[in-house]
């Protein structure tokens, strides 16, 4: 199908700013779904609140636009109650890891078959450019007028430590890689996390000396490196991309089916 068959065209042009990386993530996500030929009726997309979460308004699947930070909790209810559905949860960085941080680690721990996409633009965009837990110390934001002293989470390490079965990272510059990682994540049976570095030229860029989306994507190109291309003794300070975890661990809904089977037999 064409991209237009996956979107609610009447809402376009979308509300995101010119050059916003979230549009590229949506673009890539649609391609991934199309390549995998998943019927639209089988997909539930759940989002929270923020710029990122508006994606659910645009994609023509079953969409649930929820509360700030809580998307994964709603998604758990959708998935466990109907495990045959594919549940995809696009989230912002503040949404996923600040207000939703607890839900994020527990979703990873349970390893329920849900795909979480962290659209990391390192800023609260919807509210006008406040620092997020992924901005990192030394950055500038409207609520850090003297510079940010809050260190950042590493989404990959966090997801890995919390038990996610699949963890990957890409950027909006590396679109073909992004699409490939999204496909792998959606196919993975278990909780999968894909962090996608996404540009917010309007706020993060403006506050941090990058005037345009192009500058920011150039930055993703220059300052990231694919895991597969790291030579022996690599020590450059670049953000790594690729698949960090890909392990088959017991998936929650399948495990629960075992519980049902024993309960029905009257075992305790």
């Amino acid at each position: 199908m064409a991209v237009r068959d996956y979107i609610r065209q009447r809402f376009f042009p979308h509300l995101w700013c010119p050059g916003c990386g979230h549009g590229i993530v949506m673009n890539g996500l649609i391609r991934a779904i199309d390549h995998m030929a998943i019927p639209k009726n089988d997909i539930v997309m759940v989002s929270g609140i923020g710029c990122s979460s508006r994606i659910t308004g645009y994609v023509d699947v079953h969409t649930l636009h929820t509360l700030h930070g809580r998307a994964l909790a709603f998604a758990a209810g959708v998935k466990l109650s109907r495990p045959e559905l594919r549940v995809i949860v696009p989230m912002g960085d503040g949404d996923a890891l600040s207000i939703g941080g607890n839900h994020f680690i527990h979703a990873a721990r349970r390893n329920m078959d849900i795909t979480a996409i962290v659209m990391n633009n390192r800023i609260y965009g919807m509210t006008g450019g406040q620092f997020s837990p992924l901005s990192g110390s030394g950055t500038q934001a409207s609520t850090a007028p003297f510079g940010n002293i809050d260190p950042a989470f590493d989404v990959v390490s966090l997801a890995k430590a919390a038990g996610a079965g699949f963890v990957a990272r890409s950027t909006t510059y590396h679109v073909t890689e992004m699409i490939d990682l999204l496909k792998q994540a959606i196919s993975h049976r278990g909780f999968s996390v894909v962090e996608i570095l996404s540009q917010c030229p309007t706020y993060f860029g403006k506050h941090n000396g990058m005037e345009s989306a192009v500058d920011m994507m150039e930055n993703f190109r220059k300052n990231t490196k694919s895991l597969g291309k790291i030579p022996e003794g690599y020590s450059e300070d670049k953000v790594l991309r690729g698949v960090f975890v890909n392990e088959n661990r017991p998936e929650y809904c399948q495990e629960y089916e075992r519980i049902i089977a024993s309960a029905m037999k009257g075992e305790t």
């Binding site: 909790a73 709603f74 209810g77 998935k79 466990l80 024993s262 029905m264």
Partner: peptide
Amino acid sequence: LPSIGGKYIQMEDEIASVCAIVGASLTGH
């Protein structure tokens, strides 16, 4: 619940609990 084929899940907190049941209600439960 599992003995009748239903589902029980212990969430990470009460916030998540109410959100999870909303999700499950939407799938028809």
